[in-house]
């Protein structure tokens, strides 16, 4: 699990280990999705870094954009084939498709052509 410095934390990141202060008081429990208020609390208590599950959406976008074009095309075609109806004029479909593509690109395991 990545350790992230408190000043680099973003809203929505998921804490992967209980965060306690020096008196062993629980500040934020494992599994909690960070809010801006909680990030403020961590800073107020002088917590330098915490463990999080993932670095959030920014990292995911990079993963998808790093895919070679052929692999991206293959992944897109495979995903498209799973939908009974693919309507690119429908904003709900396009948003869901984008999310699912990113989710597949970030799935553990190697993507192969």
């Amino acid at each position: 699990m990545p350790q992230i410095k408190t000043e680099l934390l973003q809203e929505g990141m998921v804490v992967s280990r209980d965060v306690k202060n020096i008196d062993n008081m629980l500040l934020i429990p494992n599994g909690c999705k960070l809010t801006s208020r909680q990030i403020g609390i961590l800073q107020a208590w002088g917590v330098h870094e915490i463990e999080v599950v993932s670095a959030g959406a920014a990292g995911d976008t990079d993963q998808l954009s790093r895919l070679p074009p052929e692999l991206l095309a293959k992944l897109t075609a495979e995903l498209r084939a799973t939908f009974w109806k693919a309507d690119d004029a429908d904003p709900v479909f396009t948003e869901l498709f984008k999310l699912m593509l990113r989710r597949r690109a970030n799935r553990p395991g190697k993507l192969r052509l």
């Binding site: 998921v14 209980d18 934020i28 429990p29 909680q38």
Partner: peptide, 11 residues
């Protein structure tokens, strides 16, 4: 109860 599903801030 302590999982992300419930999302309580106290243990």
């Amino acid at each position: 109860s302590n999982s992300a599903y419930c999302g309580f801030s106290t243990k």
